[in-house]
Design a protein around this nucleic acid. Structure first.
Lengths: 145, 145
DNA sequence: CTTGAACCTTCAGTGGCTAGAGGTTGTATC
DNA sequence: GATACAACCTCTAGCCACTGAAGGTTCAAG
């Protein structure tokens, strides 16, 4: 007989909240779990592996759609590695874009707070800079980082 | 007589979508706009300034709650600059945290794609690393960058 | 007076969960 | 066998900061 895991122990082993596991099942990222007679989910080791993969990918910043593709590739050992590589490279590129924007942001913010000398808000450099884009060194046209 | 701006021209001047302006009004970030007899919104220059401030703050990554506080400080010139400074410093700190995590992520991703030699997915390093956390140099416990 | 672009409201959806209400099951202990 | 109670279940709604679309109305130019 196979030892089965409850959703709670699966969560503990992978650092995942129970609701999140159920959510992954709902969106088809995790398979439909087997159930006890009473209707509680039971998992096997393959499920643990899959969830670990998902979680680790999430920690590395992959989106759920990318993870779906990666899982699919993992399920087909004979398919080319190229697709996984493409997904990873694309993600890396996105991370680098964000890094660049965040760095520009940091520069601007640092300058802002350094210039603030702490008087009345009427003379506040922070507020001035926010009011007047032309005070900025970079364009930062995009929003949300 | 005062010249009035339509929501569309306000949007064009500030690089904001019309729906976004209405959304800002809805959540109380922009004041309730005056209306024509037919019910269309009309804006004055003060509104333009306020929206510019909001948008610029968003470009610098401030959240809407922080922006609300900053706007409030701007409306009260005699209040201390300290609060604005605190908000900006807090935000800077958050940006630095994110930068650090993104950098660790980039390192890991780079290593991953560099090791991929492009064979069958069964031997794919990308998938292997995702399967096995112990292959990673950093802990990256947190999710979502 | 007609055209049509720009406006209006309302609702739903994005990503990736997370929280809560209100009810049921599983297991350990007596 | 009874009881207690932690852990499970479903369902709904909320988070952030918008964005899109449906279906209808108004404004300004010609």
């Amino acid at each position: 007989m196979v030892e089965m895991l409850t959703i709670g122990s699966l969560g503990r082993k992978t650092g995942t909240k129970v609701q999140t596991i159920r959510y992954y099942e709902q969106i088809g990222l995790m398979p439909t779990a087997e159930r006890t007679e009473g209707g509680q989910r039971r998992y096997v080791n393959a499920d643990l592996d899959r969830l670990s993969f998902i979680r680790h990918s999430r920690q590395l910043g992959f989106g759920l759609d990318a993870i779906r593709e990666l899982l699919d590739l993992g399920d087909h050992p004979n398919r080319s590695c190229e697709e996984a590589d493409t997904i990873a490279r694309r993600h890396l590129w996105q991370v680098e874009q964000r890094l660049a924007r965040l760095k520009a942001l940091r520069t601007e913010l640092k300058r802002m707070v350094q210039e603030c000398s702490g008087g009345r808000s009427a003379e506040c450099r922070v507020l001035e800079v926010l009011r007047d884009h032309s005070e900025c060194l970079t364009q930062h046209d995009e929003i949300g980082v």
